[in-house]
Design a protein around this nucleic acid. Sequence first.
DNA 1: TTGTACGCGTTATCAG
DNA 2: CTGATAACGCGTACAA
Lengths: 317, 317
Amino acid sequence: MITLSDVAKKANVSKMTVSRVINHPEQVTDELRELVEDAMEELDYRPNSAAKALAYNRTNVVKVVILEDVGITEPYYMSLLFGIAKGLDKQQYALQLVTEREDLKLGDPDGYIITGARNTDSELLASLQAPVVVFGENRSGFDFIDTDNKEGIKMATEFAIAKNYQSIIFIGIDVKEPFEYSREAGYINTMQQHQMIPRIHRMANHSHLSQKFINEHWREFARNTIFICASDRLAVGVVRAILHNGGNIPVDFGVIGFDGVFLDQVSNPQLSTIRQPVQRLGEHIARMLLQKIAQSGAQQGELMLTPELILRGTTRD
Amino acid sequence: MITLSDVAKKANVSKMTVSRVINHPEQVTDELRELVEDAMEELDYRPNSAAKALAYNRTNVVKVVILEDVGITEPYYMSLLFGIAKGLDKQQYALQLVTEREDLKLGDPDGYIITGARNTDSELLASLQAPVVVFGENRSGFDFIDTDNKEGIKMATEFAIAKNYQSIIFIGIDVKEPFEYSREAGYINTMQQHQMIPRIHRMANHSHLSQKFINEHWREFARNTIFICASDRLAVGVVRAILHNGGNIPVDFGVIGFDGVFLDQVSNPQLSTIRQPVQRLGEHIARMLLQKIAQSGAQQGELMLTPELILRGTTRD
DNA sequence: TTGTACGCGTTATCAG
DNA sequence: CTGATAACGCGTACAA
């Protein structure tokens, strides 16, 4: 193993000079700096993160916490993890996955990335002893990152209007959480701007529930109706019910989902959807946390990334 | 932060005694040991893993490598990661996710968990500088864990025979990999044991390919046929095609998938499938790697976990 | 601007 | 069986 001292010897300087070249290069003369850099290169020096962690009193570990019940594993989180891992790797950070509340207190990570948190989790999060960033809108003051939910639904609604769908119905998720409020707001605002009357139905986020709902109300839906759904799951159920009742997709009926992770692609026909940039969100939240750690816990604010409207088999051209 | 020294003072011993109580308790008298244990309890002592890592010349990090192209994110890996994380957590290990081959060489993990490896990756794996365990059967001599593929298909085939399906067809994945050979072997052996003639069709692992295949050969399939598929993806396509052609599931046609992760549950009707114990596999492979690290790289052999035949909407009672 | 001495928390070695 | 000492690799504080 190559250490600072090895490099120092090779460059004929003290190891402190080498350390400075790495952490405070401006304090070293160009001459020495180049000498040291060459030596590092030649020896293929790799800093020892355990030693660094010990000196800084850090662990170089962040906990990634999934508070949501993932009975059926959401593919969503896979992409998110990929992104997070990518963001952390660049700084030689490692992660520990936590899926059970009890395990939250174990270990001493340098920070936490929280996903799937509900309003009721605020106290729990506030009690953590290291910097926290949250994945998903919240109004409890935690730094967060999320898709721009409002904007996403706005895009879909304006598309529906532009395509002359007569009736534009929103199928929402029956939860009192900011992400849902924002999605509904995007729908309502856009409808009102165009003097159209919003119509919202809410249910738990399961495809068989939206399927059942459409089946039971089938007679109420005239041709030229589009359903904008708060999730791909709901959208998949809607599609099934329309087809089951003999409705023609995409000619007479349209369906747009929300998420754009996995489900939209394996469904048949492939779903038009508002795709969240999940992996990028992951990268950004990792960066946000690392920065917060570097700034010893300073507030980072919020960041919203714009989703993309993907048009496929369930909307007409 | 509570350190060894703090505990040592409280217990009136040297910190080496405390260290021994933790790592080599048999070298300490019962009397002192209890004294120290009480002190640790009272002070809520938590070992500093960075310091430990430095002393042992370890990083306490393992890399989890996904070599497969995950264009469409496989939910499969999510469960696996949960399991791995659980196994690692117990020993205070953290993980780094690697999805790109180039990133394999960065950092100095204590070991590697490799998934999605193909035959052609053998050299790459052999060149790694830390203990390696592989997820998935292989015949290159790497320690591995996998579902008992052969046994799983055998269970499904015997079920089909017991239910008096006239024709039992295997839809396989068109790859030259051990897992596929084992699945086919499970099918062929069982068929032969019952004096039945095996019939296998292979294609790439996409639902639209199996869908297309069934459509094109629809006339060849008499009633009372069951399709045993090498993946849930293939099974989903088969189901779609059967329904599309007016076939009655589960009365006249049966379908059994393989995997039992996510897809089987969101499909409609819900899929009968051979469920892999993915999360348990994850836990076991983590343990295997940690043990291999502890034994400085000693061979661990192979471990196969038995899958479970889940009967749902695509097979008759 | 550069170097020296020491500390971070833990473990191995060796002496008692 | 127990304790003192040195060492792991790196960073800070202070001195030169």
